[in-house]
Simulated assay, not measured.
Amino acid sequence: MNTPVKILIVEDEMLIAANVSLELTSLGYEVIGIIPRGEEALLHIRENQPDILLLDINLKGNLDGIEVATEMQKEFDIPVVYLTANTDDAHFNRAKETRPYAFISKPFKKKDLQRALELTLTRLASEKEEDSSNEGIEEEFAVFEDALFVRFQDKMVKVPIAEIQYIEADRNYCRIHSLNKEYLLVLSLKEMEDKLPKNHFIRIHRSYIVNISQITEIATTHLVVNQKALAISKGFKKDLLKRIQTV
């Protein structure tokens, strides 16, 4: 590696963190910090962004590792690799919502750490190639008063806004879920959000935009659209409740 990949370790067991740091350094990575608390990690990331965030799930303090990843992803698009002794379904399902690049179980082996990071870098390189190949493609969709025209099988088709249920991030793509069909578009969810009519759609999670008229239930951590439960991030829930009150 010409320029070492910068990794931030967020781990509250300092012996483990020191061991991880030594292994990373021996593998040629640059450790830019060892942080024991989630709140401190968020401050550190804002000042010195790493290339990869190596994050323990079960942190002490106000934020666990999953909450740290969720908060970080509101501002930055940094790959997350979880280092954890928690392998139960509840933790895994929560962590999965943050779309991590890998999981490393504690106690870890150097080979596990090495392979997880190599896979992460391979995936990052692949995503950059996809970004480059998508430059200059034709417009993926157009917005009209009551419908979107979206690219589907080399043609533009009309999708009434009333039939769109939600839109889901799918790596560098986004997937429109309508009543009768799904449409995969070559653009990010953020690009989609910027163009959608705000009176019909709202972002509820880094992975989801919903059609407000399709919401049938709002719970503490999720909402329901056509019997499909979609996670709500804390940072978006306040805006959602405001919008619901004014509709």
Rank of each mutant, 00 (worst) to 15 (best):
N2G: 12
P4G: 02
V5S: 09
K6G: 00
L8Y: 00
E11L: 01
E11T: 08
I16V: 09
I16R: 02
L22A: 13
L27T: 01
G28H: 03
E30V: 00
I35S: 00
I35N: 01
P36T: 03
P36H: 03
E39W: 11
E40Y: 04
E40W: 05
H44I: 00
R46F: 06
R46A: 08
E47L: 03
Q49V: 02
L53P: 02
L53D: 01
L55Q: 06
L59D: 09
K60N: 13
K60A: 10
G61K: 08
G65C: 04
G65N: 07
I66N: 01
E67P: 07
E67N: 09
V68C: 01
E71G: 08
Q73W: 09
D77R: 15
V81R: 00
Y82N: 04
L83N: 07
L83S: 07
T84V: 02
A85D: 09
A85P: 06
T87V: 13
D88C: 06
D89A: 15
D89I: 15
H91N: 12
K96M: 15
K96H: 11
T98E: 03
T98S: 06
K106T: 03
P107Q: 07
K110A: 10
K110C: 10
K110R: 09
K111E: 12
D112R: 07
D112A: 04
L113E: 03
R115L: 15
L119Q: 08
L121S: 03
T122E: 15
E127C: 14
K128V: 10
K128D: 13
E130G: 12
S132N: 15
S132T: 15
N134D: 13
N134C: 09
G136C: 09
G136Q: 05
E138Q: 11
E139Q: 10
Q153M: 06
K155F: 05
V157W: 03
K158I: 10
A162R: 13
Y173K: 06
C174Y: 07
Y183T: 03
K190D: 12
E193N: 11
E193C: 12
E193H: 10
E193S: 08
K198G: 08
H200L: 05
I202Q: 05
S207H: 08
I212G: 04
T216F: 07
T216K: 04
I218R: 06
T220E: 12
L223V: 04
K228M: 06
A229T: 15
L230C: 01
K234E: 13
G235L: 13
K238D: 14
L240P: 03
Q245L: 14
Q245Y: 15
T246F: 02
